[in-house]
Design a protein around this nucleic acid. Structure first.
Lengths: 192, 192
DNA sequence: TCAATATTATTAACAGTGTTAATTTTATGC
DNA sequence: GCATAAAATTAACACTGTTAATAATATTGA
């Protein structure tokens, strides 16, 4: 019965939306089954009629955050020509997203995810956002394949590191210094 | 009475040792007040007669792990001449320590620490281990001050990133690939 | 040595967590 | 309207950190 399936999907979405709200707001530390259920308008045990456990709900949220992050990056940095400047813009917009939602950073890079496929999708996400630009830079022979492999690796890892330091250790303490650090980093990593 | 102070210090050390054992073994996820106390041979509430709360115990553990990590790095990489090769050795030994004790990585870079001073000590730790080498490289004019500032930043952040990816996301999945990635990274970051 | 005191360690309790089983409420088909 | 199927709920269990009140031990003074 398709009517039943529709209702079920609606109820599931209430739980997912509640989970996302808490993760974006108070963060994963404040997430709890009872907290989610209350916000969704159900009792805590009802959640288990629709989801295996809490981690499934978190994994589903991660996938939606991934889409949201991609949209944010695409909008905030209006696609100019492909190349180094676009990579810089993408990286900055990507970083801005996690500064706005630190709880989502935890999900992407720290918390244990239920599904291995979600895990892999997330860890390569930033790199895939820049795929076209790297292809372009190789096509015009600005970089060799070997250079691109090395630079991509450094870029991806140092972006994760700079975010972890800022969000979890408050280093640097000022946001302006953080922005400067990123500019310096991009300048040095992407130079020939 | 110095006898009393001695006994108190001994009891404190039992709790600290128990905490360190759990953190190195099962990790911070398995850490609990009752778990620590049981291993220390006391009841759970006794802990609060010697420490403000669990976070104080964790902060004290972090400081001891810091010393242990420094010793490990100094021993495993027998100090040759200062310079690029020594930096590579230090970084590799540093990374190895956290691969051996993933729970300690969590404490250093992820978990909220009670004391801000401990926080700052930890985040700059790798960089301070290489201090002499950077000074040397500038003294022989292998790098300029500006170059060193940029390279240090990239090195520190990308080491954190590469560790986070490997320990928390299992990327790369093979240890041999992980080692290769680090070699490539060091090669590219430290080149002129 | 024995009672009074000070110190140390313990149990009980509270509010919170994830999860499961049993139960109650609601909706459906005849 | 009634029996049945579905959905939502409460009760319970084993955990968590932390505090207050109690029990056990050690120390002191006479």
């Amino acid at each position: 019965m398709t009517n039943k399936a529709l209702q079920e999907e609606r109820t599931r979405s209430y739980f997912i939306e509640a989970t996302k709200e808490i993760l974006k707001g108070e963060g994963s530390k404040a997430l709890s089954v009872r907290n989610i259920a209350e916000r969704a308008g159900y009792s805590y045990a009802t959640l288990y009629n629709y989801f295996k456990d809490q981690t499934e709900l978190v994994s589903l949220s991660v996938l939606e955050f991934k889409d949201e992050c991609r949209d944010t990056v695409n909008k905030s940095f209006r696609k100019s020509d492909p190349g180094l400047e676009e990579i810089k813009g993408i990286v900055k917009a990507y970083i801005s997203y996690f500064v706005q939602y630190p709880g989502v950073f935890d999900l992407f890079y720290i918390e244990k995810l239920a599904s291995k496929s979600v895990n892999d999708e997330v860890i390569n996400f930033l790199d895939t956002l820049c795929q076209e630009d790297w292809d372009y830079l190789m096509s015009i022979q600005h970089f060799t394949i070997e250079e691109v492999v090395g630079i991509r690796s450094i870029l991806n890892k140092s972006v994760i590191g700079v975010l972890l330091s800022y969000l979890k250790r408050g280093t640097p303490s000022e946001y302006s210094a953080f922005v400067k650090e990123i500019d310096l980093l991009l300048e040095n990593v992407l130079k020939k």
